[in-house]
Amino acid sequence: MAANNAPTELDKEQIFGMAEKEMEYRVELFNKLTSTCFNKCIDKRYKETELNMGENSCIDRCVSKYWQVTNLIGQLLGSNRPPM
C-alpha cells in the first residue's frame, strides 16, 4: 500500500479543532488572570475612576506572579511547552 501523507478531511478538522481549543485556552487564561488580579488589587468601594499608583503596581506584580504560577503548574503537569 502506498503511503499517503496528505491530511484527510478528518485530520484537517482535528488540526483546526486543536487550534481552536488552544485559542480558547489563551482567551480563558487572559480572562481568569484579569479577573483574579482585579479581585486581588482593586478597591471595591470604587471611590474614583482612575487606577491609583498602588493599584497599578499591584497589577504589574500580580500579572507577573500569575504568569510564574502558570509556568510552575505547567511543569508539574508534565507539559514542557510554555503556557502560551
Binding site: 481549543k21 485556552y25 481568569k32 483574579t36 506572579k65 500569575y66 503548574i73
Partner: peptide
C-alpha cells in the same frame, strides 16, 4: 483536549488565589 486545558486554567486560578496574597514583589 478542551477539558485538560480548562482544568489547567482552573488549577492555576485556584492555587494562585489560595497561595499568593502579597504584591510587594514581582516574583514568587
Amino acid at each position: 483536549i478542551r477539558d485538560s486545558l480548562r482544568m489547567y486554567n482552573s488549577l492555576v486560578e485556584r492555587c494562585f488565589t489560595d497561595c499568593v496574597e502579597n504584591f510587594r514583589r514581582k516574583s514568587l
